[in-house]
Design a binder for these strands. Structure first.
Length: 548
DNA sequence: AGCCTTTGACCAGCG
DNA sequence: TCGCTGGTCAAAGGC
């Protein structure tokens, strides 16, 4: 209960909103509007902040640690280009106080238009820029270049780390898509790059031609008219215009956040010395293949990344033991248990009608190595969905031993008992075989995953898979338990990241985390102690106190 | 035969 | 105590 009550994971969904526009809404349950501007809102509203924006980003430093995003209601709406007459222009209403719309400001500063972000209570501006485009002079990679994007030498191969070989990827333009998520060096803030929720396209439904999650038939208007010709066709998906469209939408939102955050970071962070190495790998990390970017992106800077991508497995075996329609959720929730005899890990998965995973929550950490790939259950029993959870959260980690804790240490029992708010993970492997995207992050340094774990009001990121956990602990209160629970913590990271060294380490961990699953994380703000995650085409926000 | 999913029922927590 | 809700159990059936 603490998890839900303390900070809730909201599963923003594409949905038509008041104005009838389709939005990728990122709702933030927040109760009390904080006086301080939250980073997310700020960077979302102004992806390319001028100095003032920087202030916004740093605004959290004022010591209002507790503030966090949770205090700010916020929604990110990704306009649906499809609505031609009414391109969605998401924007943050909070920021909308300024006369100019977000997109307008972005255009002015960045030279390209972006979808608007909308925040609760904000007015929808008339400005409309359905497509997120990058001007010729501005490459996505450059946008993402951030000190914090360290090359993840230790990181496992993954699309984002650049270690992942992309077979069949002939598209030179991938760089734009491969750009690693930029992490804020800023002492406290960092962002995760949202990754293409490509996987959503690979659902069986996709094969069937059913609309992707975001494009639920009920909301046809959501379809984004994006040109996907340039996109690399995935083996599983074939050509699914709809799927691409969905991707496009997601990308828009992700790009927006990513860019905005990046901008903020650039101005803010100069500290991440350790992350200096970053940039290099950026190219290597392809975002999920087809993240079919908006038409613009697809055409230009964001070509389809992976020629052949497929749903990935997390490497663990799961047995579904229940399914229930939860009240707050639009989609049914499935309950899974790890099939390993001594493993108590469970996970809850919400899946859209199309089979897209909209939310994954892990509970516990695997105390056993990841089963051999070949040993994995092919599909013996009836598979609920091609995008079975296991597939969805496949781990990107190649280097890990399969244990939840880095270094092979056993996960803390207490910690394991906690539910993790998982992030839908979707990795795309260039091999064209099965793309796995585990929630786990490669990281020797960190034990955290994209998932956020909440315990007694404390939230932290943890790798549900237990495999490679990079840690970014998020918690209101830090207790020893948390540290123990996470590999990162075990590494002495548990102490508050007040020192520079800690920050560096934190950055490194973050980098690992991001590298491992950039697609999951749209943004993260340490100062604000919250994360924005994108899962299955949906954004999730999680708030808590960040610990490293 | 083994493993899995499905699904209604049961249980526990909470207001 | 009751009702609601979420989580789990377990029989039935499928692959």
């Amino acid at each position: 209960g603490s998890c839900d009550s303390h900070f809730s994971i909201i599963s923003p969904r594409f949905h038509a909103e008041m104005d009838g526009h389709t939005h990728l809404a990122m709702e933030w349950k927040d109760q009390s509007p904080g006086p301080d501007c939250s980073m997310l809102p700020s960077f979302l509203t102004d992806p390319f902040p001028a100095d003032p924006l920087v202030e916004d980003c740093d605004g959290g430093n004022d010591g209002s640690e507790g503030g966090g995003f949770e205090r700010h209601g916020l929604s990110v709406a990704v306009g649906s280009p499809q609505e031609e007459g009414k391109p969605v222009t998401p924007h943050f209403g909070q920021r909308s106080s300024s006369s100019s719309s977000l997109s307008e400001r972005m255009q002015a500063r960045a030279g390209f238009s972006v979808a608007k972000l909308s925040m609760p209570g904000s007015e929808y501006s008339g400005a409309q820029s359905p497509y997120l485009t990058i001007p010729p002079g501005l490459s996505p990679a450059s946008l993402l270049e951030s000190p914090v994007f360290l090359s993840n030498a230790m990181g496992q191969s993954s699309p984002t780390t650049g270690k992942l070989l992309m077979l069949g990827d002939t598209n030179n333009n991938n760089n734009a898509r491969l750009e690693p998520p930029s992490v804020e060096d800023g002492p406290r803030a960092f962002s995760f790059k949202a990754l293409d929720l490509k996987s959503s396209q690979y659902t069986a439904e996709g094969k069937k031609g059913s609309l992707p999650n975001s494009q639920h038939p009920s909301a046809p208007s959501r379809d984004v008219p994006v040109k996907t010709e340039t996109n690399i066709q995935t083996t599983t998906q074939g050509a699914n215009p709809l799927g691409h469209l969905n991707q496009a939408q997601l990308n828009n939102g992700q790009d927006l956040m990513k860019r905005s955050y990046h901008d903020c970071n650039n101005k803010r962070n100069r500290l991440a010395a350790d992350s200096a190495t970053a940039g290099g790998d950026n190219n290597a990390s392809p975002t999920p293949p087809a993240t079919a970017v908006d038409s613009e992106a697809a055409k230009g800077d964001y070509p389809a990344a992976v020629a052949t991508a497929a749903p990935a497995e997390d490497g663990y075996s799961w047995r579904k033991y229940g399914q229930k329609q939860v009240k707050h959720s639009e989609y049914p929730r499935s309950y899974y248990k790890c099939t390993h005899p001594s493993c108590q890990v469970k996970k809850k998965v919400e899946r859209s009608h199309e089979g897209h995973v909209t939310e994954i929550i892990y509970k516990g950490t695997h105390n056993h190595p990841r089963p051999a790939a070949q040993s994995r259950r092919p599909a013996g029993g009836a598979q609920v969905h091609p995008f079975n959870d296991a597939q969805m959260d496949a781990p990107a980690d190649n280097n890990n031993n399969g244990y939840g804790n880095a270094g092979g240490s056993q996960p803390n029992a207490e910690a394991r008992s906690l539910w993790h708010a998982g992030v839908a993970v979707q990795d795309w492997r260039g091999d064209g075989l099965e793309a796995t995207s585990p929630p786990s992050v490669p990281g020797e340094l960190c034990d955290s995953s994209a998932s956020m774990q909440v315990h007694d009001g404390a939230a932290r990121f943890e790798s549900p898979e237990g495999g490679v956990d990079v840690t970014s602990a998020v918690s209101d209160e830090v207790d020893g338990d948390d540290r123990v629970a996470h590999g990162s913590m075990s590494q002495g990271q548990g102490a508050a990241d007040t020192t520079e060294g800690d920050e560096l380490e934190s950055k490194r961990r973050l980098h690992n985390l991001i590298s491992a699953r950039p697609h999951h994380i749209c943004s993260f703000h340490q100062e604000r102690k919250m994360c924005v995650l994108i899962l299955g085409g949906r954004m999730f926000q999680e708030a808590g106190v960040v610990r490293h």
